[in-house]
Write a protein that binds this DNA or RNA. Structure first.
Lengths: 68, 68
DNA sequence: CTCGAGTGGGGTAATTGGGGTA
DNA sequence: TCTGTCCCAATTACCCCACTCG
C-alpha cells in the first residue's frame, strides 16, 4: 500500500505556519518574500511551506548566541 | 535492454498530485481544466497526470540567482 | 455482477495574494 | 525594521450526488 507514494514532502499552508508561529498569514508571506522561508508555489500562485523547515525554525534558531 | 515496456510513463492519480501539492484533488482537476497540467483521460473520463510534469512543477524554476 | 474508494461536475464559503497604511 | 490590518480579485476547500476504477 506504500507503493503508491511517488515522492511527497509534507507541505504546510500559510495558515498552518502562521498558527505555529502565532503570527498573521501575511507575515509568513513576508518571510517567504524575504527569502527567510522556502516557499513552494501552487499552480494558482498560492504558497506552500516545507514542514521540515518550519519545524526546524520552531525548534531553535541557528543564530543568536548572546542573550538579552 | 531487455525491458518489455511499451511506453509506460509514470502516471499519477488526482489524489497523488493533490498530496504532493498539499491541495484538494478538486484543485488539481481545476489545474487540468485550466490547461496548467497535462491530463490523460481514462476511457471513463477520469484524469491521470504525468509524474515528470508534476515533479517539474513542484521543483519550481531551475533559474534564480540573487536578482530580484 | 457486487463492493469500496476515488473522481467528476456544479455551487458556495474561506483562504491567499498583492499593495498601501498604521 | 517588523508586524497587523484594510481593500479587492483570484484561488482554494468542502458540500451534494452519480459514475468510474480496480
Amino acid at each position: 500500500m506504500t507503493t503508491r507514494t511517488p515522492d511527497a514532502e509534507p507541505l504546510l499552508t500559510p495558515a498552518e505556519v502562521a498558527t505555529m508561529f502565532r503570527v498573521d498569514p501575511k507575515t509568513v508571506t513576508r518571510w517567504a518574500k524575504a527569502g527567510k522561508l522556502t516557499s513552494i508555489r501552487t499552480l494558482g500562485g498560492h504558497r506552500r511551506y516545507r514542514e521540515a523547515e518550519v519545524r526546524a525554525l520552531l525548534k531553535g534558531v541557528p543564530s543568536m548566541g548572546s542573550d538579552l
